[in-house]
Every structure is written in structure tokens, then in C-alpha cells.
Nucleic acid binder design. Structure first.
Lengths: 343, 343
DNA sequence: TTGTATGCGTTATCAG
DNA sequence: CTGATAACGCATACAA
């Protein structure tokens, strides 16, 4: 049970702990021969340095924290390796931390910065209504990815890469209109959603108006407030079923997330409604699943790779060149697929 | 930049650090009044205890480590909350750690146990060919989930909950045969796969034999060795395309993972092949996607919830009652869906 | 090139 | 109930 420490290794090697430390950390001023010898003993004894002790002692580090909110978010999963690689190109390490969807990413970040002497942070996802105080508390440069921060938060307090949820949603609905759909139902987030769900809904409303289609509140469907379950296929399926039962007239379903769209698609197809002939279907985000669905589902692809790359670039421009906070808004790619090819 | 420590709090409160420590850790022997006062100052100064220092100093803990290999594994994502809740019922904390698919889970576990004084471990996924030495090095009870450990590894060195990949795969293929499919193609893992891919393939071979169907090596398709990409929809799609191009005669595709099946399904449908009329389709694992696909895809559902619950139960039976290592094999649920409803 | 000594921030063991 | 103080395991400045 007693675990082996640096002292044990030192003793076994007849050297001082500092020498062992040097061996571990690839210090230049150490005899290669002694180093070899020490590393051998380390191997044999399965010695692993205590990270906590290292963190506690280290005064500097070259590492960037990556705080990912939601371990199974597929968009974030695609960004992660891009971030790690990008950060490595600046000769920095990455420290990846997953936190739950209900966790406090700023608080977690604060802890990490203290403990691991992080030089910077990249947030994947997060609360859109952070206070000024929250943001100011973070003592290192940071970039928020894919968070629609409230307009009220001063832009000079944080950097960000994002997509314009309102605008891209507008584009999508405009596209649907151009395809001839006139009775478009939207599967939105929950009523209380003030973030992407709300913004995408607003885009829907305005795009319809611009196409001189009256916004029918009956065609606006909110998710029930089942928290984590909102952006799920199951929720899309439930809404789809209810929509069909309701008897409301529609010729297209637009879901504010691909996962919802997939569930909705199933509900439609199951009821014998043909897509796209009798009803169009569209999602948002650009998940791989939409491509392999049958019919393939029209979606707005978020340029996750580019966003991740830019997040790193922005972070290091602040870190190395002392530049100010920056905001970069990316355009999505409208992937028009089978689910909206009416004719 | 200078972060606030326990000393600062002590100073601000005119008490000793030990008193602050008591306040933080809810020690019984502290005046509620002083405690209240201290907590207030802690709030005001946004003090967060340094976890590294705590870990370093703490001699005991009531926490179980959960090492998850592959952050975006959907099966694991479903098990996680079940594990956390189960562990909490024993009044223990959970420490969740994600490691990459190529990481060394045992090594990581060793580090964690040392640093955080973990009382036990639950592994989600991992290398199937660990050595005895590896397993023996883990100084606390642990349970492996969903790992088909090699037969050569002594069973008394670890606990496990798992499914019988060979047997369940056999059942699936048997089911396909009973549905009248006679020319079943299998989309397997890579050639070198000695784990689930191999076991499921063996089940396929034997089930065919049992049904007096000759195993045609032409119908056994291996994934190209693209490492992480093997169990992906993209891979399934590629294989599906190639299968069709090959001109080989087949009436059913059985993929050793649902993700592969979904990609394959797309390839088939895209080529105008109707499922299930002209070709059956089946996967393995029980991902939600299979249910919302159109047609819904027949799959072997792994009882992830039950497995997670049992993992916790086994762990604490060892921990509290000193019981020996145990192995529990769960049955999958054959979900016969539209993709194999021939008539 | 190597050894010695100090302290990182915290908890635990003592006294008081 | 509270305060002083010794560790925890390690990295580093400084001395040798």
C-alpha cells in the first residue's frame, strides 16, 4: 500500500532526490549515465511522480487548459484533437478537463489555473449569461468557443469564436422557403431557452417574414423542459409524434439541432410521411449522422475545425503578442441534402 | 495573479489556518459562529482550496475512481451517471477521469490511486491483453466494464461485468439465419483485432455452421487499419460501397458495431437496395441511433444500466465485505427491428 | 555534475 | 473549541 516516492528511488540509486528530479524532468545538467541508471530503477519500481506534488511545487508551466462542457458533445469531440494539436504547435501542453453540463466552467477554470499554473484557457461550451465579475475573475487569457454570450456582456472581457445562430438559422429557413416550403414547423428548444434555441427561433421568424410567410404560432413547437434531454433524438421523436397527432398542417420540419431532426424524421417516416416529397426536414449543427441518414438530412454545418484552429490562434496572439480580446464569427456551411430536395 | 490561499483567509479572519481548514472540511469541533464568519470571507475573496495540496496532504478519502477510455463512447456515456449515482448511494464520491483511446488506463489508475487515495476503481473500456503484472500492480479493488479480457489472464486478478461477445454475436447471426438470410456479409473490425471484433466474427462463423451455411471468406470483410476510425459510420459507408462494387452476392449485412451498420445502411439505400426486402441489416451494441434510423436497425443491446449498477455492487462487496473478485456476464437484448423484417 | 535545504498549500496531530 | 507545527512529495536555488 505504501507507494514508492522520489525518495525511494533516490535511495535505491544512491543519489539525492534532486538528481532523480533532474532525471525525470529531462534536465540538461545531468550525467547521461546517471540518468539512464535512474530511469532504469524508476521503470523497475513502477514509480510514477505524484502529480499533485509536482503541481504544488512548480512555479511555471507551459500548458493551456481546455474546459469541455459535456463529454458527449459531438461537436466538441471533433474540436478537441484540433485544439490539442494546435496548442502543441506552439510548444505548449494541453490539459483537458471535462465538466458536466450543469457544472460551473469558470469556477473550474479558476481552480485549474491556480493548481496547474495554466497560461491560458479555451472553453468549449458554457453558460451564456456569465456576469462581468465572473469573466474578470479569470486571470489568464481565454477564448470561448460556441457560446452565444449575452449582448449585455462587454466584448472586451473575453475572446470568442462562434457562429451567428440567428443569422445562420435565418439562412436555413430562407433556403427552405426557396425550396417551396410554406408551412414550416420549427422544433425549438425549451421555452425558457435564451441561448441558441432562442436565437435560432428568432432567425426562423424573421426569415419567414422576409419571405412574406406569416408566422403561425401553432407551428412553433417548444421542447418540454426536460433539461439534458432537450437536444436528443428522443425529444425530436416525441415532438414529431405529437405534431402529427395535432392535425396541424405542415410541409416541412426544421429542428434547431440535428439530433432533434433525426428523431423527428423517424416519427414522420414511421407515419408514412415521405421525406422530402410530403414533408421537408432540416437540422442544425452538421453532425455526421445527418449524412448517413436516409434520406440524408439538410443541415447547417458548423465549421468546427476552423473554429478550433482559430481559437488557438487568438489565444496565442494574446499570450505572445499581448493583443486584446478578439471575436471571430464563422459562417456555417449550408448542406442541402436529400431531405429538402422536393422535386 | 497572486492567488489567495488558506493563509490569506486565516489572516483576514484573525484565526489560525487550522481553523480555516476545519471550516472548509465541515469539521465537527468548530464553533458554528466562527465557521460562518470564515465561510463568508471565503465567499468574498473567491477562495478555492488548492486541490493538489489537499490531495497531497489527505491521508484518507472516500472516493472511487472511474476511468473512462474514450470520451465519446456512447455506451460509456450512458453508464457514467448510473455509476456516479450508485457510488453516491454508498456515500462515496466519484472521481471521473477520461483517457484517450490510446492511453494506458492502468498506469493512469495507478497515478490516481496514489494521488487521490482512491478506495476502488471502475474501468470503462480498456486493453484486453493486460499482463498479470499490470493487474497485480493495482493496489485497490477494481471492476472492469465491457472489456473482453484474454482467457489467459487469471480470473482471480480482477472483477468484471461484461457481455459474451462471441455468444451474443452467435445469437444475432442465428437470428438472421432464422429470418431466412443465407448470404450474410459481416463487416468486422480490423484484421489484427483480437478483441470484440474477433470474438463477434467467431460467433458469426459458428452460427453459420450451426445453420449449415458454408462460411464464405469472401463475405467476411475486415476494416482497414485506420485505428480510431474503425468503429465509425464513415468506415461502414466505405465498406458498404466497396461491397456493392465487388459484385459479391449477399442478402444481409451484419456489422459488429451499430455505427458501422448505420454507414453501411446508407451505402445500401443509396444504391437503391431496399432494406429489409432486398438486404437485411444488423448491428451490435444498442445505440439509440439504430432506433431512429429508417428503417430501424436490428441490434444487440448491451444492458449498460444493469452492468453499471452491478459494477458498483461488486466493487463495494469487495470493499466492505472483503469478498473475492467476481465476474458477471450479462445477456444482451436482441432488438429485432425493421431492418430484418423480411416479409 | 551532484547534493542540501527550503517551501509550495493543505491537513492532522498535538497542546492549550 | 482553537492555535502552532510537522508532514505530504516534489522542484529549485544555491552550495559544493
Amino acid at each position: 500500500m505504501e507507494s514508492v516516492t522520489i525518495k525511494d528511488i533516490a535511495k535505491r540509486c544512491n543519489v539525492a532526490v534532486s538528481t532523480v528530479s533532474r532525471a525525470i524532468n529531462n534536465h540538461p545538467d545531468i550525467n547521461p549515465e546517471t540518468r539512464r541508471k535512474i530511469m532504469k530503477v524508476i521503470e523497475e519500481n513502477h514509480y510514477i511522480p505524484n502529480n499533485s506534488a509536482q503541481n504544488l511545487k512548480k512555479s511555471v508551466s507551459k500548458t493551456i487548459g481546455v474546459v469541455i462542457k459535456g463529454a458527449d458533445n459531438q461537436l466538441f469531440a471533433k474540436m478537441r484533437p484540433v485544439l490539442v494539436e494546435g496548442i502543441a504547435q506552439y510548444d505548449y501542453d494541453s490539459d483537458i478537463e471535462y465538466i458536466s453540463i450543469s457544472g460551473d466552467e469558470i469556477r473550474e477554470a479558476l481552480r485549474l489555473v491556480k493548481e496547474k499554473r495554466l497560461k491560458g484557457l479555451i472553453f468549449l461550451g458554457g453558460n451564456h449569461n456569465r456576469t462581468e465579475e465572473d469573466l474578470k475573475a479569470v486571470p489568464v487569457p481565454f477564448v470561448m468557443c460556441t457560446v452565444d454570450m449575452d449582448e449585455t456582456v462587454p466584448k472586451d472581457l473575453y475572446s470568442s469564436v462562434s457562429v451567428d445562430s440567428y443569422q445562420e438559422s435565418y439562412r436555413m429557413v430562407d433556403h427552405l422557403c426557396s425550396k417551396g416550403y410554406k408551412k414550416i414547423v420549427i422544433f425549438s428548444g425549451s421555452r425558457g431557452d435564451e441561448s441558441v434555441g432562442r436565437l435560432r427561433l428568432n432567425g426562423y421568424r424573421d426569415a419567414l417574414k422576409a419571405n412574406r410567410i406569416e408566422v403561425d404560432e401553432q407551428r412553433i413547437w417548444y421542447s418540454q423542459d426536460w433539461a439534458e434531454d432537450v437536444f436528443s433524438m428522443a425529444n425530436g421523436y416525441r415532438m414529431g409524434k405529437k405534431l402529427i397527432e395535432s392535425g396541424i398542417d405542415f410541409d416541412c420540419v426544421y429542428a434547431v439541432a440535428d439530433s432533434i431532426a433525426i428523431g423527428a424524421g423517424r416519427a414522420l417516416l414511421e407515419s408514412g410521411i415521405r421525406i422530402p416529397e410530403e414533408c421537408g426536414l432540416a437540422g442544425f449543427d452538421g453532425l455526421d449522422e445527418t449524412l448517413y441518414y436516409h434520406p440524408s438530412i439538410t443541415t447547417m454545418r458548423q465549421p468546427v475545425k476552423e473554429m478550433a484552429e482559430d481559437a488557438v490562434k487568438i489565444l496565442f496572439s494574446m499570450l505572445h503578442k499581448g493583443e486584446a480580446n478578439q471575436h471571430r464569427v464563422f459562417s456555417c456551411k449550408l448542406e442541402a441534402r436529400e431531405s429538402t430536395q422536393k422535386e
